[in-house]
Design a binder for these strands. Sequence first.
DNA 1: AATGAATGAGCATTCATTCAT
DNA 2: GATGAATGAATGCTCATTCAT
Lengths: 192, 192, 192, 192
Amino acid sequence: MQVQKDDVRNKIIAAATEEFLNAGYQQSSMRNIAAQAGITVGNVYAYFGGKDALFESIISPVWQSLNRLISIPVDTQDLMTLPTLNQITDLITETFLENRPQFLILMNKSAGSPYKNARAELSAMISGRLSRDILPQCDPLLADAMAGAILEGIFTVFNHYGGDGSRLRTLISELLGLLLGSIPCKYPPKHE
Amino acid sequence: MQVQKDDVRNKIIAAATEEFLNAGYQQSSMRNIAAQAGITVGNVYAYFGGKDALFESIISPVWQSLNRLISIPVDTQDLMTLPTLNQITDLITETFLENRPQFLILMNKSAGSPYKNARAELSAMISGRLSRDILPQCDPLLADAMAGAILEGIFTVFNHYGGDGSRLRTLISELLGLLLGSIPCKYPPKHE
Amino acid sequence: MQVQKDDVRNKIIAAATEEFLNAGYQQSSMRNIAAQAGITVGNVYAYFGGKDALFESIISPVWQSLNRLISIPVDTQDLMTLPTLNQITDLITETFLENRPQFLILMNKSAGSPYKNARAELSAMISGRLSRDILPQCDPLLADAMAGAILEGIFTVFNHYGGDGSRLRTLISELLGLLLGSIPCKYPPKHE
Amino acid sequence: MQVQKDDVRNKIIAAATEEFLNAGYQQSSMRNIAAQAGITVGNVYAYFGGKDALFESIISPVWQSLNRLISIPVDTQDLMTLPTLNQITDLITETFLENRPQFLILMNKSAGSPYKNARAELSAMISGRLSRDILPQCDPLLADAMAGAILEGIFTVFNHYGGDGSRLRTLISELLGLLLGSIPCKYPPKHE
DNA sequence: AATGAATGAGCATTCATTCAT
DNA sequence: GATGAATGAATGCTCATTCAT
């Protein structure tokens, strides 16, 4: 019974993940998901409670991972110097590699969902780091813009990249080198 | 009569612009727009013909401006060296300054609309420029990522910036300096 | 002023006649009619009062003509023997020749209009004649069917025939010969 | 459950058949049908998918039967002499007897529907037969008119006749005798 | 646990008609 | 007399959600 239940759960999760990834949260239909999973609508509700909760079930693990990043207070006193941005993007990349579709849904297809602000929060966290450690005198708006740019760059690579992890990590690293290499001292370009 | 007609037109445009900006094209409702404009649904249709056409009325001017950029063939032979990217972002900034909400709708809220690909087209154009003039040996995916990053950075500033044009231009210029300053020779950082 | 008024009237009549003939009463739109006439919707209402009344204005003359036929009581005592059916169809043909589009509208495109029963009434009248004079012992239902058949036959010719009156009269006459030639004595086939 | 489901299906079919028969395809409203069936609009869509499909569900069986007639090529070489017209009308009568309201809807109330040309196609087929076998030298227009007349006559009987099949067959036979009895040799009047 | 029928509010759109100007 | 903006109810259709079985 338990086996069967997990089987159904997994089918729903798989179908919903595909639907959310293809159509986005708002344009996804519970009917489609149920049909794709080969079960009935009512049963999707029995398992997950609703569209929001189903989305949450899928996205929550990725969100937990990212939240560990996001929830680190930026004004902490421990020395958080330059390498951290690399660590952050590494962590993001790891999270992506572990849950590609979920990650892409969360970052690009969550409009209208309970997680609609996820990307903004991640961006805000990165912006905080930039302000504190890399661009200290910088206009906060510029830090936000840099954070958004970095994320968008990374996600563009994520979106179009289908290969394995190591090449991906190189790409992301190169990208960061390009995006941040000009910042004096603190982020020396890797390839010079 | 004419005055009143323009008044209603403007009310509809204002209401629709706000609705599109808040909710995005797909989630905007003609009923809401009509109610917000203080008129009946049928009258919105009398003025604009439909949701698509209403959206088009609002977005078309901005799109015309941007299209001039997008439609420049990237593989042209005339010398198109580095300064061009600055020119591009200047033009984008001017377009934004002339029609702020419309610009933001077109770039961030047009999912599902006839203009849904606008941002991607603009990004592709910038990516083409980068590949050709700034990052010639670069992986095309990296050029796409850089283009996306630059656009996202600029749009983030646009989104949060409420002041006048001159300060904005400075911000965008600083942003580009940060994003591209590391690229050897061709894009010397402005602030050193 | 009077001249102008008639001019407008005529334009509306012409536009409406075409619209009714093409689209039928129900599917015709006051907007289309006004646009086709080159005037405004409100003015159509000023001249004719509404869709029903406009239809009535166009159809009424034809209807008057036909009504003279229809309103002759079938149970009158004067001898109304066989030739009468020919007279009836002659009159119908004359009415058609004088007002082709109006006639076709009334007979084929008046569904949903105040004249929706016109054809049925005409048919009932012919049926009455048939019962009384041509098919006296016949089942009333059969008389109805014959009346309907005769009318449909005639209208089919009307619908597809674009030429002049004399050829049309010949066609109708031949048609009646075919349809009624078998009825003994009273309707001798013309061509034998 | 299954019983109930069929029950609802039948209620919808019954309500829709009545609505289509009374108001015609175009003027029928899904809301009316749902209300008449005692269920909600959405449920009608759940069962039948849409107005067209609902109409199709009702009309399709009758259309299949008639289509067997219509699709017989007229220019075939096998001997197709006079009795065939009788066979055709017999088949039409059988089809009507099996599905009375559906037949009447298809022939008289299908304007605007996917089956709007059904009657014209049937008429054209009969016209072809008449031209080929019964009225060989005849003006094609006259053959069309005769075909239309025959159909209209038959349908008039169908419309007003509520009794059983045998009486109906007699009526149709008599009607054809009247309509075609004059045609020399080939269609000898039955009643002489 | 599973079904899937049923709900009802929502959507974009159309159109005959009215009426202030 | 003429305008055309405005109305508002109607239409076909969708979909997240509920609930009796």
